[in-house]
């Protein structure tokens, strides 16, 4: 059976990639572990953006805001003596979800260009709000000199342990996203991207579905922020700078929006390119810019599109 075979192949590839990623710490190079950690975290963040962008058709230029809310919640709790995973993580995810609820409830009243701009404006608001937190470092941000703990002596201070947590989080997020996209909710979201007016006329209150999707996406990005704060040990407004939102958007497009693996590939590509090219020249952006323009003009579907061109994807 052809269908079963492909199904199996897909699972095989997934398992293979996960094992490969799990093997990275055995290379014994802390540098690679750190780089891979960063890639996976941004992969998670890009994946969360793709839920609203690629599946829901909502072009948000303010996604870094949720990354920032997650990271700042982690940092602020740390500075108030709270390091327990069991408190910090739900709080950070809850805060970014709440932020997404407020931002989404207002932004989703608009559409098109106005939506792009209002999400950008909200991200700027959060940027300046965080930069204005004088008690937590203001413009300079704050350090977090030890990581969250699970309790019972189990902490994340070991980079390898943190790496496995990050990898696990991404695998779980990937699986949950798969379920979500294929579920009834996911079908509604994809329908809205394709033709929102038609969805309304067959009876869907589209605003509610978009809002819930926006909140899920924001909360997931907030979780990426938690992980990033733990990895970097440093939280600053630079996390929320609008160019960061742009970069996350680039990751999704580069990898292939509307697919789950695409954003992760995109994050890997962008961060690896940065790592490699910046070894040759500090001016690597001079190549990245035109390359991106070419991708936009000619590379529909990003990397995933390139790999599956001509094949119908259901």
């Amino acid at each position: 059976m052809k269908g079963d075979f492909r199904f199996g192949k897909r699972h095989g590839a997934f398992l293979f990639t996960a094992l490969l990623l799990a093997a990275i710490p055995f290379m014994g190079e802390p540098f690679y572990v750190r780089l891979a950690s960063r890639i996976l975290i941004y992969g998670l963040c890009a994946l969360s953006l793709d839920l609203i962008l690629g599946y829901g058709g909502m072009v948000s230029l303010g996604h870094a805001a949720f990354l920032g809310v997650g990271a700042y919640t982690t940092g602020i709790l740390f500075h108030n003596g709270v390091q327990s995973v069991w408190i910090v993580w739900p709080a950070a995810v809850g805060m970014s979800g709440a932020a997404a609820l407020v931002i989404g409830a207002i932004s989703l009243r608009t559409a098109g260009v106005y939506f792009i701009m209002i999400t950008l404006a909200f991200a700027q608001m959060i940027f300046y709000f965080c930069a204005g937190l004088e008690a937590y470092g203001g413009d300079d941000g704050m350090a977090m000199w030890s990581r969250n703990t699970f309790g019972g002596g189990l902490d994340l201070d070991s980079p390898v342990r943190l790496y496995y947590i990050i990898l696990g989080a991404l695998v779980v997020a990937f699986y949950l996203s798969r379920r979500l996209v294929d579920s009834r909710f996911g079908r509604v979201i994809r329908g809205i991207r394709e033709n929102e007016g038609r969805m309304r006329s067959i009876g869907y209150p589209t605003f509610q579905y978009k809002l819930v999707c926006f909140v899920i996406s924001g909360a997931a990005a907030g979780f990426a922020g938690v992980l990033l704060a733990n990895l970097n040990g440093y939280i600053s407004p630079a996390l929320i700078h609008w160019t960061r939102s742009g970069e996350i958007l680039v990751m999704v497009i580069l990898g292939g929006m509307g697919t789950l693996i695409g954003p992760i590939l995109g994050a890997a590509c962008l961060l690896l390119a940065e790592e490699i090219l910046s070894g040759f020249t500090q001016h690597w952006m001079i190549f990245l810019g035109p390359l991106l323009i070419l991708v936009v003009l000619f590379g529909r579907g990003g990397l995933v599109g390139l790999a599956t061109r001509g094949r119908y994807r259901g």
Partner: peptide, 11 residues
């Protein structure tokens, strides 16, 4: 349709 788990195609 706030149902997130089951695959829609199998219902």
């Amino acid at each position: 349709s706030f149902r997130f788990w089951r695959r829609a195609a199998t219902i």
